[in-house]
Amino acid sequence: MGSEIGYRRGMALVVGAAVLWSLMGLAIRLMGDAGTWQILFYRSLGLVPVLFLVILHRSGGRPLPRIRAAGWPALIGGTGLVFAFAGAIFAIRTTTVANAVFLFAATPLMTAVMAWLLLKEPVRPATWVTIVVAGVGIFVMVREGLAIGAGLGNLAALLSASGFAAFTITLRWGRLGDMLPAVLIGGVLSAVVAAAVISARGESFALSLGAVAIALFMGAGLLGLGMAIYTAGSRAVPAVEIGILSMAEVMLAPVWVWLFLNEGASAGTFLGGAVLLGAIALNALTGMRHKTVVPPG
């Protein structure tokens, strides 16, 4: 397929983004007892300047018209990202990284259901089967989480997945071809909401210098740079293949915390995660097989 960057380079960029995002759980673990809203605040401060500079570059030095053109869909989608970002951080802090990221993987299925309900987009029969099978995997993981006292973490992970799904649906509804303005708005809103919550609770913004550095790196390096190269690569790779390549994030995230922090996960978590990921991969593969008769998007 024709592309300004080429198919193979596009694949490498998408996988590279997934690898960067997979380090998020390890980074949050390394921040010790930093709170969810503190992490979200400083991570957002790292994210926003990077995305603004990327938009500045891609817009030929005119970022504000590009951001304003995104309009209400970007604002609504950015609000969804606040729930997605905060839920993800809370989930990783209160349950195992493996459990959290496996539940995050349900995002494409939630997106399909939301698109069917809100946008009247058709859902392939194979996707409905995937949703049912994936539901079994989610049930196994949530039940396991309740058993080990991580029920709130599991619910937060599902809330995060719902937030990302809502973000995706909003982009489709607004027919936005570039997600970066919406993510930028989401980063600004996240910083504002986090600051408001910290202030309302009478908590401190103070963290150790090391924790602040990690949070800023998460925003600028892992999330911001990851978003930039993902959006560049996704222009050259079919959507169904992006879904499969992005699974590298889910597979690698538990590996990093196991290698560096010796954090494992229960058999139930891996069993449920295997069922969920298997269902999603099978759905993506059937989508690739039928992509000549089923129009994308």
Score class of each variant (00 low, 15 high):
Asn99Met: 12
Glu203Ala: 15
Leu118Cys: 14
Leu276Trp: 05
Ala150Val: 04
Ala115Asp: 12
Leu30Met: 09
Met251Lys: 07
Gly35Met: 06
Ala267Thr: 10
Met31Val: 09
Met11Tyr: 12
Pro295Lys: 06
Phe41Ile: 08
Phe164Glu: 01
Leu271Asn: 04
Leu118Asp: 01
Leu118Ile: 14
Ala194Met: 11
Ala191Leu: 05
Glu263Lys: 15
Ala267His: 03
Val294Ala: 11
Phe139Gln: 05
Gly32Arg: 09
Arg201Tyr: 10
Met179Arg: 14
Glu203Gly: 13
Phe83Gly: 08
Val240Ile: 12
Gly297Ala: 14
Val250Arg: 01
Leu81Trp: 02
Ala239Glu: 12
Val48Ser: 04
Thr111Asp: 04
Thr170Trp: 07
Gly287Leu: 07
Ala147Phe: 10
Ser234Leu: 14
Thr111Ile: 03
Ala156Glu: 07
Val142Ala: 03
Ala165Pro: 07
Val275Leu: 14
Ala274Pro: 07
Ala147Trp: 06
Gly25Phe: 09
Lys291Pro: 03
Ala213Val: 13
Gly210Asp: 14
Ala265His: 09
Gly137Met: 01
Met179Ala: 15
Pro295Trp: 06
Gly151Thr: 13
Ala213Met: 13
Ala106Lys: 00
Met251Asp: 01
Tyr42Asp: 00
Arg143Trp: 13
Phe52Glu: 02
Gly32Cys: 08
Met114Tyr: 11
Thr170Ala: 08
Val19Asp: 01
Leu103Gly: 02
Leu189Thr: 04
Ala265Leu: 10
Gly78Thr: 11
Leu13Glu: 11
Ser22Cys: 06
Leu26Gln: 05
Val240His: 12
Asn154Val: 01
Ala211Phe: 06
Leu20Tyr: 04
Leu277Lys: 04
Leu252Ile: 12
Glu249Ser: 08
Gly87Asp: 03
Trp256Asn: 02
Val82Phe: 10
Gly60Phe: 11
Ser199Gly: 00
Leu117Arg: 14
Val101Tyr: 00
Leu189Asp: 07
Arg172Ala: 12
His57Ser: 05
Thr79Arg: 06
Gly6His: 15
Ser246Trp: 04
Ala236Cys: 10
Gly297Ser: 12
Gly46His: 08
Thr292Phe: 05
Pro63Ile: 00
Leu184Ile: 05
Leu180Glu: 13
Val212Asn: 00
Pro238Met: 04
Ser160Leu: 07
Leu26Trp: 07
Gly226Pro: 06
Arg143Phe: 10
Val237Tyr: 05
Gly61Asn: 06
Ile5Arg: 14
Leu207Asp: 05
Thr130Val: 04
Arg68Ser: 11
Ala112Trp: 04
Ala70His: 13
Ser208Glu: 12
Tyr230Ser: 07
Val101Pro: 04
Ala74Leu: 07
Trp258Cys: 00
Leu285Gly: 09
Gly174Leu: 09
Ile244Ser: 04
Ala88Gln: 15
Gly71Leu: 13
Leu20Met: 09
Pro122Ala: 09
Met227His: 15
Phe102Met: 10
Val257Met: 05
Ala228Gln: 01
Ala213His: 09
Arg29Asn: 02
Leu245Glu: 03
Ala18Gln: 00
Asn99Asp: 10
